[in-house]
Design a protein around this nucleic acid. Structure first.
Length: 973
RNA sequence: GCCGGGUUGGUGGAAUGGCAUACACGGAGGUCUCAAACACCUCUGCCCGAAAGGGCUUGUGGGUUCGAAUCCCACACCCGGCACCA
């Protein structure tokens, strides 16, 4: 160290430098830990109970979407939301609220497991190490978290309750009449007593054996195993939920192809809640964009089911078939007269084998193009089904433009026109939506139009186009699907729709179908049940065992938690990503001792042998209910104490459904985590375990911190920190590189860590910078050069209060009353900052604090009241330096619970305001006037102004608009 | 293709019907210093002009209004979501 630096330091040994900031920050972080400053008491006498007044205190429950403990560590983008919730929480503490804010870890799931596989360590070991690293990085930021309430989803004391909730869901069914979930025992009782008959085609309850009963109940349970086409991803070795598959038909994680494969898997009956998940969105204080995404995902559409009679072929091979019907779902029942053919999904059961509708031979005169070149319909159908099954979703979508399909040889009857229409199978009809069958109206649906063109099927116009194209579909380029038109060509012997508008025609035909008993108005949802099992090691084991008959039994509560066993090889079995003809193998199944057990399930049949379920739950399970466990993390008796839950989550004024007061996280969880968590919330609500039907009342999506990516001539990212700017171009060494905006991360060599910013400027500066960059919900680029601006703010604030030579309060800090202008500046800042912090507008709050501080800096002395005001205003944003200054100013207690200042309305308005005088909207003069000036006085003053008078000379005044005290606009003629 | 969000100085942004460019970064000049750094002060949207001053300006074009970054219509571009959903 050189002498000159020593000299500078000795001149100002108490200057606010990075070293001093580090010292202050470490000291106050230790202080907060030691005093439990951020511990939020629960009402009542539970493990975290507070004093008796707690229950009466207003509360704020603030949450962040908790992180995965990834091995890469944090970059400056990660804590953006955490800092924002911390600032908001601190502001709420200073305005008298009991604030619950903590942060846990979402530690199960693919990322943690893949990282563990890559590094060759057990997932628990690497996960714990990562959590340790992230905890220390986060602690450095001074986040006001109640550490007692932090947990990880992999803690057995936590996933015990995840398993418990699974059992609750497994042991419930959705009562459509009551519109809510009920215990499955109540359904069994209804069957036993005969109050509820078993569904059609089933024997009486008393005649069913155990397997049949289990099978019947499985059709009701909210968690059930079923054989269904699922998203099988050989590259990952696991099945995936629809929400985890991209639009390209690949896995969101790893980007591997995904195939439809029929496998027995666990599902959650989220579709039972489709309507409630939709309607309950309305009162939530969420970004409209997210609500819209959920609405689209649920995809409610109103329409009708219609039966088309069709001959079956019979099973005996004697040709003696029967009558059945193809039921279709349509939103355009008004176009029923235009249905000239039908299409079934390739997977549809009526073409699956014997007893279906496929005849032995092609009907007389079947066109060559319809048969696919096959000798019999059965061959054609089998071949097409095989072809469709072998296609990955990627291929299926890539082929979407070219319609393919094959004739089944069968005909159905259009119930309104009586016309015989051919039945096709084609992969443009999806088994998972509606009934997996459609009536095709080529004139009024563009997909049917394309298919009809390709297969030369007839088209009939039944809605008269309003765009003057005529009523001959053969001459059209595409279908006419607008609702703004009249029905034509729709007069049958039994029902007539001609002349009606689309909406009236729908109502008329729906009523007629219901009368005839061949259809009904119905609501259909795009939402599918949630595929809930994964062939992975690193997840919650299912608390389910199978008996020798293969019937699933829930473990009794006393056997929870069912701990994840240690295995030698926890990596999943993966396959050639393109090989659809593979099936999953669960890591847990390799552990025979764990799988095969003898248990007494308390069913009165004593100890018996069982086989454990070897699938694990998806990583979403742990995040579906964590808000509840923050409330009561040490409760061994219950998920959460009801009175504690009611206090923090219960419905109240302005929040009819209840929930977390503020939940901040990225928009990427719009339909995954947020939909699943809402679903679990509703089940727990229905079963009486919680008082809030919604988990999160207010949701806020923070933007992403982006970073510049520099690439060399080969397009390879180069280390951003080493790039230099010269005359608007960028260079690495001698070579020019290009600059684009992208994500921040190690792979693009542009990560900036909070650690390095803290080391250079301190955590308070980092916090201020992240909050000052722009509105919280907007993405913006990181600029390390600009961080110094917030550092300077803190340095000026420090110097306004502290003597840099002595470290004591500066002599310029006086007990004198502030002058008028300073008082007004202070109260305007207080007023503005309060509103901004309440509205999460941290960037403008900082601008207002900066303005006040700049004003104070220019004054020769700093009145103590103003110094304290500044410290209190900045305390939520820069808590360490605020604590230090608060202490220096003579306060014995922490600033964390000091009262946030309240503005005096008398000083919020300026003494004089600037009035602009415009002539025809152009500014000609500015007047300093009293804020209480009347319109008449202001008009007079404006017209008397020399510049205005000069500009008006010669013209005639047509009108004068006066908006006292800010504006006069003279309109001349 | 459909739905949603956006486009303001050299840069991040402020202003949501009434002074466009607050606050900050960067830049220029200055004070302090032997010098530098720090700090502090002044200037900094664009164009014309020596200056005084004038003109122009919120993606583009139109409209509503005394007055538009802000409201409406059309277009362009960027970002996000969904996508054969009957």
């Amino acid at each position: 160290m050189s002498e000159t630096v020593n000299a500078a330091e000795s001149a100002a040994p108490h200057r606010y430098t990075a070293a001093l900031a580090a010292d202050i920050e470490a000291r106050w972080q230790d202080f907060w830990d030691k005093h439990g400053t951020y511990e939020a008491p629960n009402p009542g006498e539970g493990s975290l109970g507070g004093d008796p007044e707690t229950a009466a205190k207003p509360k704020k429950f603030i949450m962040d979407m908790f992180p995965y403990p990834s091995g890469a560590g944090l970059h400056v983008g990660h804590p953006l939301g955490y800092i924002a919730t911390d600032v908001y929480g601190r502001f709420q503490r200073m305005t008298g609220h009991n604030v619950l804010h903590t942060l846990g870890f979402d530690a199960f799931g693919l990322p943690a497991e893949q990282y563990a596989v890559q590094t060759g360590t057990h997932p628990r070991v690497s996960t714990e190490a990562n959590m340790g690293q992230m905890r220390s990085q986060l602690r450095r930021l001074g986040l006001g978290h109640d550490q007692r309430r932090s947990f990880a989803t992999i803690d057995t004391s936590y996933y015990r309750w995840t398993q418990w909730i699974f059992l609750q869901i497994f042991n419930s069914w959705y009562d459509d009449e009551a519109g809510r979930a009920r215990p499955i025992d109540e359904l069994v009782a209804e069957f036993e007593s005969g109050r509820r008959p078993t569904p059609e085609g089933r024997a009486d309850w008393s005649d069913l054996d155990g397997t049949e009963r289990a099978d019947l109940l499985g059709g009701y349970r909210l968690a059930y195993a079923s054989d269904a086409p699922v998203n099988w991803c050989p590259g990952l070795g696991t099945v995936l939920a629809n929400e985890e598959v991209t639009a390209e038909g690949r896995s969101e994680r790893g980007n591997f192809p995904v195939f439809k494969s029929r496998l027995r898997q666990w599902n959650m009956r989220i579709t039972a809640y489709a309507e409630r998940l939709l309607t309950d969105l309305d009162p939530l204080d969420w970004p409209e964009a997210i609500k819209l995404q959920q609405r689209n995902w649920i995809g409610r559409s109103e329409g009708a089911r219609v039966d088309f009679p069709v001959e079956t072929t019979g099973t005996g091979g004697d040709g003696a078939g029967g009558q059945t019907a193809i039921t279709v779902f349509t939103t355009r029942q008004d176009t029923l007269f235009g249905a000239t053919y039908m299409v079934l999904a390739p997977e549809h059961e009526l073409v699956a084998g014997e007893g279906g509708i496929v005849p032995a031979a092609w009907p007389e005169g079947t066109r060559e193009a319809w048969t696919g070149g096959h000798a019999t319909p059965a061959e054609a159908v089998t071949a097409y089904r095989a072809q469709a099954a072998a296609k990955s979703d990627v291929e299926r979508q890539a082929d979407a433009k070219d319609k393919t399909g094959v004739f089944t040889g069968a005909h159905a009857v259009n119930p309104v026109s009586g016309e015989r229409v051919p039945v096709f199978i084609a992969d443009y009809v999806l088994m998972g939506y509606g009934t997996g069958a459609i009536m095709a109206v080529p004139a009024h649906d563009h997909r049917d139009f394309a298919f009809a063109r390709a297969f030369e099927l007839p088209m009939r116009c039944v809605v008269e186009p309003s765009d003057g194209r005529g009523t001959e579909p053969a001459a059209w380029d595409d279908a006419f699907s607008s609702y703004d038109a009249r029905i034509v060509n729709s007069a049958g012997s039994r029902v007539v729709l001609d002349g009606l508008g689309v909406v009236e025609a729908k109502a008329r035909i729906t009523a007629w179908l219901e009368e005839q008993g061949i259809g009904a108005g119905t609501v259909n949802y795009r939402l599918r049940d949630w595929l809930f099992s994964r062939q992975r090691y690193w997840g919650e084991p299912f608390p389910i065992v199978y008996d020798d008959e293969g019937v699933a039994h829930p473990l009794p509560e006393s056997m929870l938690p069912l701990e994840l066993p240690e295995v030698d090889d926890y990596s999943p079995r993966t396959f050639d990503p393109d090989d659809a003809d593979t099936s999953p193998e669960t890591p847990l199944s390799r552990n025979g001792d764990w799988v095969h057990v003898t248990l007494d399930l308390g069913r009165g049949d004593g100890p018996r042998t069982y086989r454990r379920e070897t699938n694990t739950m998806p990583n979403w399970a742990g995040s579906c209910w964590y808000e509840l466990r923050y409330l009561d993390p040490y409760n061994d008796e219950r998920l959460v104490d009801p009175s504690v839950e009611r206090y923090w989550m219960g419905p109240r004024d302005g929040m009819p459904t209840g929930g977390v007061d503020l939940y901040v996280g990225g928009a990427e969880h719009a339909v995954l985590h947020l939909l699943y968590a809402r679903f679990w919330s509703k089940v727990l609500f229905d079963l009486g375990h919680v008082s809030s039907a919604e988990p999160f009342h207010k949701l806020f999506n923070q933007g992403m911190i982006q970073a510049y990516v520099y690439r060399d001539s080969r397009g390879i990212a180069v280390p951003a920190a080493e790039v230099e700017e010269r005359d608007g171009a960028y260079f690495l060494g001698g070579e020019q590189v290009s600059r684009t905006l992208g994500k921040m991360g190690k792979s693009l060599k542009n990560a900036v860590t909070p650690d390095e910013i803290c080391a250079e400027y301190g955590a308070d500066t980092l916090r201020l910078y992240e909050m000052a960059m722009g509105p919280l919900d907007v993405s913006r680029p990181w600029d390390t050069r600009a961080v110094v601006g917030q550092y300077r703010l803190l340095q000026r604030l420090w110097r306004n209060v502290v003597d840099e030579a002595t470290g004591e309060v500066a002599a310029t800090v006086t007990d004198d009353a502030p002058d008028e202008a300073t008082l007004r500046a202070l109260h305007k800042a207080i007023d503005g900052v309060r509103q901004d912090l309440n509205g999460l507008r941290f960037n403008t709050a900082i601008a207002k604090i900066t303005e006040l501080n700049n004003h104070v800096t220019k004054q020769p002395t700093v009145p103590r009241a103003v110094a304290e005001g500044l410290v209190l205003l900045i305390a939520p944003l820069a808590p360490h330096v605020a604590e230090e200054l608060w202490r220096k100013l003579g306060h014995e207690t922490s600033v964390v619970y000091a009262d946030f200042p309240v503005a005096d309305p008398a000083y919020v308005v300026d003494e004089t305001v600037t009035c602009v005088v415009q002539i025809k909207g152009k500014i000609k003069a500015r007047l300093e006037v009293s804020p209480s000036i009347t319109d008449a006085e202001l008009e007079e003053a404006a017209l008397a102004d020399p510049a205005v008078a000069a500009a008006l000379a010669g013209g005639t005044i047509r009108k004068v608009i006066v908006r006292a005290p800010k504006l006069v606009n003279v309109v001349t003629g």
